[in-house]
Amino acid sequence: MTGTTDVLTVDHLVRRFGDLTAVDDVSFRIAPGETYGLLGPNGAGKTTIISMVAGLLKADGGTIHVAGEEMKPDAVEPKRHLGLVPQDLAIYPELTARENLRFFGKLHGLRGSALNTRVEEVLEIIGLADRAKDRSKEYSGGMKRRLNIGIGLLHQPQLLILDEPTVGVDPQSRNSILEAVESLAVAGMAVLYTTHYMEEAERLCDRIAIIDGGRLQAEGTRDELIRLTGGTDTIRLRGSGDLQGAATQMRGLTGVDRVDADRSSLTLAVHEAPARVADVVATATAAGVRLADVEIARPDLESVFLHVTGKALRD
């Protein structure tokens, strides 16, 4: 045992493919009930990391422990504690959702009433109870993805690994998948979630690791990561009147770092924009500005990724 309550501990993980170091000294931990996100572009090393965490790929350096047991490709006990939902679908198209779940449940040792109960629970979690009797080949891409997640949940693992589970699905199915993932953390399951979608990481993850070039570039809660950029918000006012005069008065307001004015707008860099916007609007109005629009923009994970890596997430 590692002497920790964390479900997953990854310490100084390294993986090379020839001259390429795909994973370079990566360390992180996941606690029970925590959703931890690996956020990065395709090719960043996310899938290689989870392949080693799942015991599918041998590490060239470092250690992995799942529920206190050291994970290696030939290890058996730690694999009992995790569920893996890969990018590629792992379902039988000729079987119904219920039949798929029953088959995989038996592989995990479930039998009788325990198997029946768990299958029905999972069908509810993944939102397929009303389509349980339909063969999975008749499902949409999103429904197949949800069934894939259900298979990973069957044996109630302590750690569920989800590798880009919403790739290639429609918006409605994507939202259903995200809602299912949100319910898992509420139930106390630890989740390792890989994605290159910033909005998914922001919605789902308690803590986020930004991965690029095989290295962990930054880690923390959303707010902790945002603070790496300096944490300033933007308030943009559009209108007409004495914009230069308004800008001069706004520079003296609490929390305002900078004010720029042009012929039709004022742009302010401020701290905690929601708390400052009322004073900003009142000052503009008092200065004779006739406002047409007010916009608040707050830093996001795209800003953080650009700050720590020097490039946009989609580059």
Rank of each mutant, 00 (worst) to 15 (best):
P41A: 09
I30A: 07
G68Q: 06
V53K: 05
G83Y: 02
L20F: 15
G55Q: 00
F104S: 00
P32N: 02
S51N: 14
L95C: 08
L128C: 07
V76L: 14
P93R: 04
A59S: 15
G127K: 13
P93V: 05
R118C: 09
E34M: 10
L84K: 02
N100T: 07
E94C: 08
L110P: 11
R111N: 01
N116T: 13
K46I: 08
K46M: 07
H108T: 01
Y36F: 15
E69N: 13
A67M: 12
F104G: 01
R118N: 06
A54N: 05
A114Y: 05
E34L: 08
L38R: 07
G55Y: 01
E121G: 11
R80S: 00
K79F: 08
L57V: 12
D74K: 15
E34F: 11
K106P: 08
T21Y: 09
P73H: 00
A59P: 15
D60H: 14
I30L: 08
D24H: 12
R98A: 13
L115F: 09
E34H: 09
A97K: 05
Y92E: 04
L20G: 04
D88N: 15
D24L: 09
L56T: 02
P41V: 05
P86S: 11
D24S: 13
R102S: 11
E124F: 12
V119N: 04
F28K: 10
D60T: 07
N100Y: 08
E94V: 11
G127P: 13
L115N: 04
T21P: 12
I50S: 02
G62T: 01
L115R: 08
E124R: 14
L38I: 08
E77N: 13
M52D: 02
A90Y: 08
D88L: 09
S51M: 03
S51H: 03
L20K: 14
A75C: 07
V76M: 11
H108E: 02
G68R: 07
G45A: 06
K72A: 14
G105L: 06
A75T: 12
R102T: 12
K58D: 07
G55P: 10
D60Y: 06
S51Q: 07
I30V: 15
T63D: 13
H81Q: 05
L115W: 09
V85L: 01
G55I: 04
V26W: 07
E69H: 15
T35V: 15
L95A: 03
I64M: 04
G109Q: 09
T47G: 06
R80Q: 01
I64Q: 04
Q87F: 03
I125V: 15
E69A: 13
S27D: 05
P73S: 02
P86Y: 02
A75I: 05
F28H: 10
G83N: 00
L89P: 11
T48W: 13
P32R: 03
P86Q: 00
